[in-house]
Nucleic acid binder design. Structure first.
Lengths: 247, 247
DNA sequence: CAGTGGTCTAGACCACACC
DNA sequence: GTGTGGTCTAGACCACTGA
């Protein structure tokens, strides 16, 4: 086995192309370096541009390439390890949390979130938008849904919707006794809103992390975090393990 | 906000198409039901087949559709929740582990794995192949790399490579005192070998879980598990949280 | 065999970044 | 402006499944 590759049926062109490009990226290019443009590459390999793009699409999915409309294609740096460990006894916004609160509104959550929070489907809840930045690039966008009823009363007057109010809500959350979390990770594609915040096109592949926060045996908050799948590796545990790619 | 969508620039056709199809899937189709074929759908919406396929590609990425060559396109069931929680004090193959050992060989690991195991790049290590099945479908394929030196000596004679030997190696592993794990999750595309084992085409999106197993302060094993991204939701924690999609 | 999704072509125009 | 990647078309043929 290994790369013995003695296929009976011929390998599709784009797959062969991908293998060739992949090897070239390892040996002849360095991180950040620009590739020739797609028309040039397609001509060089004697294939239609659509076929070349099929190969590039997969390399981008694997985090090997970075493409930007109007700019070009460059060799991507290794993925950033982002810690997603459960810290069982802290709330979002606790000291050490590196997310940046961006905005806050109260609105009716998506049905699945309403179910998890055990509130009626049309009941408005607190929503806090946050962003995570690593190496100067946005890597994740999050919506935190918090059942209004579970939130301890605020101290002063209620700020108007906005970043200040977002921080106020997180501050109130800290006063609750944390009761555990659980998480799930799945693949999705960025909606237009998340795409904008992540500086990607809509439909880009993202890793969606769903976190349930409990207190007093009840789910009081749900976080839906959307990570750029091309640039992120989600880590669980003390250290950052090795980075690997498929093939 | 929400679906207010008052874009200045017109939405691409495939994106509008995706939204229309997505709504239709929710309201007019049930799980397992077959969609009209691609030529028919393209004609019905008045677009080229390639454009329709762009929309179907994303819906498949989000786990809403299942396409099989020669058969057709059907509405996919909700994703299966697969537990990937760190059980800090057990080895792979411990009682309760539902993976099925398939084969075992000794060979030189990929460079990244060799580094993690702290063995020379060309040093052969034990490799155990395993498969995880849920609801009758294979959902993950795994390679477990185990440093030969760290493994306690076996009892009887060494079996020839194969499933029996795989089980024997895992049994020897249980005698070590477990020293912790850490994990990472990232997006990849299935290599031809994994694709075959997962009953998918090469290049299909997969979630790659990398696990480092430690004992006595040293990394003794590395697991690389490849989960079907279309059918799996990876869960961390006691319960299975809600399932969500992007947008 | 007929019907399905997968691959591929050779064009075209559009949206965007940068000069 | 020019040059890039993103979208789109209207075909064609291939690989596969199942009757």
């Amino acid at each position: 086995m290994g790369t013995t590759e003695l296929d009976q049926q011929p390998e599709p062109k784009y797959r062969h192309l991908k293998a060739v490009l992949s090897r070239a990226l390892d040996t002849e290019f360095s991180v950040g370096q620009a590739l020739p443009n797609e028309r040039e590459l397609a001509a060089r390999f004697g294939v239609a541009r659509a076929t070349l793009r099929q190969a590039l699409d997969q390399l981008e999915l694997e985090g090997r390439l970075q493409r930007r409309r109007g700019v070009g294609t460059t060799v991507a740096p290794p993925r950033v390890g982002v810690d997603v460990s459960p810290r069982q006894h802290t709330w979002p916004g606790a000291p050490g949390d590196t997310w940046v609160a961006g905005d806050s509104v109260t609105t009716a959550p998506p049905p699945a979130v309403a179910r998890a929070l055990d509130v009626p489907a049309d009941e408005p809840v607190e929503v806090v938008h946050r962003t995570l930045v690593a190496h100067g690039q946005p890597v994740a966008a999050e919506q935190l849904y918090i059942a209004s009823a579970a939130l301890p009363a605020g101290g002063g007057p209620r700020p108007a919707p906005g970043a200040e109010r977002a921080r106020a809500i997180l501050a109130r959350l800290q006063r609750l006794e944390a009761g555990g979390q659980d998480r799930a990770v799945e693949l999705g594609s960025a909606g237009s809103e998340d795409a904008r915040r992540l500086d990607r096109l809509p439909g880009s592949p993202v890793l969606i992390v769903t976190t349930r926060y409990a207190a007093a045996g009840r789910t009081v908050a749900v976080g839906v975090s959307t990570y750029r799948a091309d640039t992120c590796r989600l880590t669980f545990g003390n250290q950052a393990p090795l980075s690997l790619s498929a093939s």
